[in-house]
Write a protein that binds this DNA or RNA. Structure first.
Lengths: 146, 146
DNA sequence: TTCTTTGCAAATCGTTTGCAGCATG
DNA sequence: CATGCTGCAAACGATTTGCAAAGAA
């Protein structure tokens, strides 16, 4: 996600307005590494602005996604999470408990092409799906066995 | 996605039953490269078994996802697509029109670790988010300009 | 026969919409 | 003061649920 200052410029350049709601949501996302859902974000900002409506939150999140400043992803169970971290990293997603972990594995550190066959790339994401240690234990799994 | 024969074994091993509905849906997904939504899949199989209910389709899709045989992803706008292609490849996803293209770029051809810190990896996915040529043209964009 | 799975229909829940009032530029 | 944005509440639509009947093993 770009900085608050840059986002301010983006909104102004589009003829939009830098409202307190946008600022609040941007600040809540800034530096976040928890992959929150929309609901979790709402709970986080509600105390700071109780009148904030879900519709506004969704609208601000959607524009960030469309600008390439926020990534939306499915944790494997249909629950939608957001990630403002557009730096190159990968996620481990457990197919049983649906928790998410970041991994800054060497495999993920790689150049992202600026353009692929006329398609302009804004950001890049990577996921590893599988079973986490807890779920493997709970399932009585002891070692890697496909 | 594993073969129909392997999936048959998986179901039997779990004490489940290889029903005609499961077979039908597995066959519809086999070799599919169109990233269909659940709705698109339903339209595809409905003519072959008109009595098939959405609930059954969702249930079969969900178990395939949980087994790591099918990947579910969000095209950036909340629309959920499925992909049975678990081989290493990446997707280009347009943030404006939400269409999806597969790319078997060299960057995607890489070893997937079997295990990462106790997490057992079943499959891997990669996405490039940005704007497609059509949408760039429609927006009056002429060259790469961040 | 036994027990999983199906189909149906209703319920659910996250997200979007329409519109009047408000606040930014 | 012009217009984009917000809050509200209702609408929406995709997915899930509960349960009786069906059909694999």
């Amino acid at each position: 996600m770009r900085s608050i200052e840059e986002l301010t410029d983006v909104v102004r350049a589009r003829g939009g307005k830098v409202t307190s709601q946008r600022l609040l949501i941007w600040r809540a996302l800034e530096g976040d590494r928890t992959h929150p859902t929309a609901e979790a974000l709402l709970e986080r900002v509600k105390p700071l602005l109780p009148s904030l409506s879900p519709a506004t939150l969704y609208s601000v999140l959607n524009e960030l996604v469309e600008w390439g400043d926020l990534r939306r992803f499915d944790a494997g169970d249909g629950s939608i999470h957001f990630d403002p971290d557009t730096s190159d990293h990968a996620e481990l997603i457990c197919l049983r408990c649906h928790r998410v972990w970041d991994v800054r594995a060497s495999a993920a550190a790689r150049d992202v092409p600026e353009e692929i066959a006329g398609f302009r790339v804004l950001n890049h994401a990577e996921q590893y799906y599988g079973y986490c240690a807890d779920c493997r234990r709970a399932a009585g799994e002891t070692a890697v066995s496909a």
